[in-house]
Design a protein around this nucleic acid. Structure first.
Length: 403
RNA sequence: UGGGUUAUGGUGUAACGGCAGCACUACAGAUUUUGAUUCUGUCUGUCUAGGUUCGAAUCCUAGUAACCCAA
């Protein structure tokens, strides 16, 4: 069966057929040899990727729109949940498709639920069960989304793939492709792209990297999509549209709640402060939702899955000046020299802090010049040289101190 | 079981007999393509029953409960 694909007829004369695992194109008659090349544009249905698609189209690229279905969201929350989510719902598909049809380029829906679920969701669950704090968007970009796009791009003879991220890609004189921050500092999304490898970067276009969000809004108006311009940003994990990742974990892991409830909150000396709902439901740096009143704000400073213990402290206890980062992907250079200075971000929307980088066997030791707050294992660390991404990796769990 | 102390929101604590306040928690918004953080706002309380007083969280009596000392 042709289960992986849904073909939505758009206006192109091309015919796309799925044959035994391969995507085959039967050449269209009016195949215009576009000077700029053919690009497979990932369209979520939101304002950013829609405008990006139209921009490329206007610039003379032969655009093929594609919307990826990562998750059957009706199954993850109640069906009556009317909340808009940034991707994966029917409205978004329709919005994306409408724009494509109106501007005369084809649009497809690609069902990647299986590969997405196998990797991103399992990784997400595993990480929380390991007492870490994953970033599924980064995982998806790194391992699923770009690979899925490129695979189809190749099958369709596309020169490029494109997304609506606010970031830039340039080629260095050393030959390597690298990511640079988007010029709109408030929207820069280079952080979530640190995992992309050279073969992906060399084929990727990010049309929005040199624009400000307000310009994109204006362009959405100018293109005749005022309602799109008003559309909210998406801001939850795409497979957890009700924004309750704890509930998602409970639904996903049979008997989890019962198994982990009743562990202890302790202070840094090990003194028991109270009981918690289970270590997977907390994250380093968390203050709200602890359900414990100590007269002072309390923050989660450490999660110890082995003993189902959550360590609490005050704000100062979140400070740290070094960390280990693994699963490194170098971007701008093939590697670095020890001691290299880097502006290092430890979370999305982090201003970044200056640090020195020292490589060790499987990763990088980061020493910050000054304390940073809330280093959370599982989160991504991204290294910047000015506006450029040197590389990034995953923050590792610190060895448990036995004091 | 004898003596003493205490009792204020979900928690910890303030209030000379004169509008019950603070912190924490919780909740709601804002922000955010991850989790968090941050910001703004909101709710809830004087153990019970009598008494004194213009007026009681506050003083008196009894009850109840908890804690401490004695045993």
């Amino acid at each position: 069966m042709v289960e992986g694909w849904m073909y939505l007829p758009a206006v192109s004369a091309s015919t796309f057929v799925w044959i035994s695992g391969q995507f085959v194109i039967f050449a269209s008659k009016n195949f215009d040899m576009s000077k700029k090349g053919k690009v497979l544009m990932a369209m979520s249905g939101g304002i950013d990727s829609t405008v990006a698609a139209l921009m490329l189209h206007d610039e003379g690229y032969e655009v093929v729109g594609i919307t990826m279905k990562t998750w059957d969201y009706a199954s993850s929350v109640g069906v009556n949940n009317k909340k808009e989510t940034g991707c994966c719902n029917l409205d978004s598909f329709n919005d994306a498709r409408m724009a494509a049809v109106e501007h005369g380029f084809p649009h497809f829906i690609l069902d990647i639920r299986e590969e997405f679920g196998d990797f991103v969701i399992e990784n997400f669950v595993d990480e929380y069960l390991a007492g870490r704090t994953p970033n599924p968007c980064v995982m998806c970009n790194t391992h699923i989304k770009w690979r899925a796009l490129l695979k189809r791009a190749d099958a369709m003879g596309c020169d490029f793939i494109a997304t609506g991220h606010y970031a830039q890609i340039h080629q260095h004189s050393n030959g390597r492709y690298f990511i640079r921050k988007g010029i709109d500092d408030t929207k820069d999304q280079s952080y979530v792209l640190w995992g992309l490898q050279q073969d992906l970067l060399s084929r990727t276009l990010l049309p929005l990297g040199t624009y400000h969000k307000k310009d994109i809004r204006q362009m959405a108006h100018d293109y005749g999509y005022p309602e799109l311009a008003k559309k909210n940003e998406s801001y939850e994990i795409c497979f957890v549209p009700d924004n309750d990742y704890r509930g998602f974990l409970k639904r996903r892991v049979e008997g989890l709640e019962e198994k982990v409830q009743g562990g202890y909150f302790v202070d840094k000396t090990g003194k028991i402060l109270g009981q918690h709902k289970g270590y997977p439901f907390y994250t380093v740096g968390q203050r709200k939702g602890l359900d414990i009143a100590l007269g002072k704000p309390a923050f989660v400073t450490q999660i110890i899955p082995e003993t189902n213990t959550v360590v609490l402290g005050d704000e100062a206890d979140l400070n740290g000046s070094n960390m280990q980062v693994g699963k490194i992907n170098w971007i701008k250079y093939e590697g670095i020299t020890d001691g290299m200075e880097s502006l290092t971000k430890i979370r999305y929307k982090d201003k970044g802090a200056l640090s020195n980088l020292y490589t060790y066997e499987n990763g990088v030791n980061v020493r910050f010049y000054e304390d940073v707050k809330g280093i959370a294992p599982g989160q991504s660390a991204v290294f910047y040289e000015g506006e450029d991404v040197i590389g990034g990796g995953i923050i590792q769990r610190q060895p448990i101190e036995t004091t």
